[in-house]
Design a protein around this nucleic acid. Sequence first.
DNA 1: CATGAATGAGGCTTCATTCAT
DNA 2: TATGAATGAAGCCTCATTCAT
Lengths: 196, 196, 196, 196
Amino acid sequence: MPRQVDHDARRREVAEVAARLIAQVGVERVTVRELAKAAGYSTAIVSHYFADKRQLLLFTYQAAAQAAQARVDAVLERAPDDLIGTIEALLPLDDARHRDWQVWLSFWGMAIGDPEFAAEQRGRVLGTRRRIEEVLRAMAANGKLAKDADFDLIARELLTLVNGLAVQAGFDPADWPAERQRGVLLQAMAPLTVRV
Amino acid sequence: MPRQVDHDARRREVAEVAARLIAQVGVERVTVRELAKAAGYSTAIVSHYFADKRQLLLFTYQAAAQAAQARVDAVLERAPDDLIGTIEALLPLDDARHRDWQVWLSFWGMAIGDPEFAAEQRGRVLGTRRRIEEVLRAMAANGKLAKDADFDLIARELLTLVNGLAVQAGFDPADWPAERQRGVLLQAMAPLTVRV
Amino acid sequence: MPRQVDHDARRREVAEVAARLIAQVGVERVTVRELAKAAGYSTAIVSHYFADKRQLLLFTYQAAAQAAQARVDAVLERAPDDLIGTIEALLPLDDARHRDWQVWLSFWGMAIGDPEFAAEQRGRVLGTRRRIEEVLRAMAANGKLAKDADFDLIARELLTLVNGLAVQAGFDPADWPAERQRGVLLQAMAPLTVRV
Amino acid sequence: MPRQVDHDARRREVAEVAARLIAQVGVERVTVRELAKAAGYSTAIVSHYFADKRQLLLFTYQAAAQAAQARVDAVLERAPDDLIGTIEALLPLDDARHRDWQVWLSFWGMAIGDPEFAAEQRGRVLGTRRRIEEVLRAMAANGKLAKDADFDLIARELLTLVNGLAVQAGFDPADWPAERQRGVLLQAMAPLTVRV
DNA sequence: CATGAATGAGGCTTCATTCAT
DNA sequence: TATGAATGAAGCCTCATTCAT
């Protein structure tokens, strides 16, 4: 019997290396050759595990999105109405989250003019907003938020803040330590949530 | 006597075409050939007016930034304390501003891993924040804002909102018509400014 | 298992084709495209086996130099004091040696203003002179040359003759058949060596 | 009446600049743009005064050859049998002659595979040899050389020495100061000329 | 399953030359 | 006579991909 290789595990492994490289040099500068070298495989690895370089990149993008989602899930499992925890799970407050944002930022260059990537990006934003809305509803159910609050609008503002913070922190991490991100976030959230 | 050409005007002309293309297909997909064809020149035109393709792109980036700055200036000339006007001058509320943001979004892909473009981006953010702070100070001088408000923090929140809105509107303009952008903006600004 | 290729052999093969082309059209007229076509490969073959076109040319130059050295070695193995044999091994007396000189002549154009190629040329001249000096010392040891002869000066004169003959024969082979080259050589060598 | 420009003087002026550049960077690296800049003219100067870049280079080559010829003429006007003076007029013993040789060396790269330049080179060698033969005949007439000497062969050897010395001195001037060039030359000439 | 040799398309750039002025 | 803007051909190189092994 031939040695069985866990196909999906290998795909994730390659995508992990890709994410590392993308965060370092940007998505457009990542060549299959460099990627293969960094991963310790031959150049044919992409054709082998992915139909295309494009598919590899898409997979890498989605993997980062799933990681973010998992972070949010971990928060909500403990407390389904932990809004601040949810938002913080999304912000680039540590290296892992910072790297995910680097990846997304880098992909945005591709997403301009690439309908499929743009759609992916739209979907990710929409999905995240839905999750935030759920948290808001949970808060309302727990009396932490007015039941007639405009959940959609609040969620939009919150996600707007997240994206805005991440963009600025992404290109100027020195100017945006975790505390400063939290400072802006809390200033903005204060009037939103204390409206029981 | 040879035909005289306004060098700077021609540079702006080429950069304008570049911006159009970038907004359409993304900065990495813009080739000199396509650019030349779209501009109605030969491929050598780029080398003629720019040292490099890279220099052309940098110039294009800066041109978009200057356009934004000019829009803000136009507002502040009329009313130096017009905060909402300033912010709206920055948001992708019409096609022109939307296109500028498409250009920046596209460049962010390059900025990851390209120190010079990243620095450019940082500079642009910093400059815009300074201008917002000035507006806040003018407001305070006119009694529209508490004199001891944390100008830096407020300016950071406002610019965070601008960037966050632009990112979302950039990839999903249908979901972010001007009114919705204003809606989020006003909801967020209300508690900030009405604190006389 | 992938097809295995002898990297160095392939490099020599490509360089051999390059030498042929250089001798025909001159080093500056050799394009990667022509070279690839003549070698029966695609243009990417050069980048595949050499970092650079420049590196390929350097390698080609050195290969010709090594061929000449090998010819001298073959002579000296049989008779370490065979001065005439050594000199004749260097002269363009047959097609193979003529072609090597064509290559060097062509490279001289590059060497002007290219420090690295100029240094390579200097090194080759110096190395050859050293070998001639060794032959002279062997002759002195065998009583074929005065022991107090000025080895350096004699070697310089001999190599001067070699270069001078090669230059003229290189551009006017019809006027410099082997016999005439030998004629000048022997006339010049007669007074040098018969001084026992 | 329009200002009359001395066409030939302008051609020589441009060629002089070209020679300077060629000696510095090699003939293949000289671009029309650089040449025009160095000469203080526009790029169209070549099309203006020469049919072609190629014609300009040919003219430059010939100008250097004429300069060498003029140097020999100056010697022979004083003493038509001054063999050593003639040879020294050809050797790169000072900067001016060194530069001429740099130009020729650089052109040799072009001459390989360029029949017209090769023919030019052949002609120059032949012409110089003829002049040396004349000097030898003058020596014979003055009793400084055996009347039945092989003028052709001696002239060939002498010109071989000249070319050989120039090649070596051209790439390694530090190793070939004037005195060393003369040393090799005199060692080689001694047996040739003292055969009255 | 995995390799690395080889490809061909395409990118940016440089350059001699032309042309209207 | 002289200019400099503009061209188009060509050069080198890089890269994702394919294919025999």
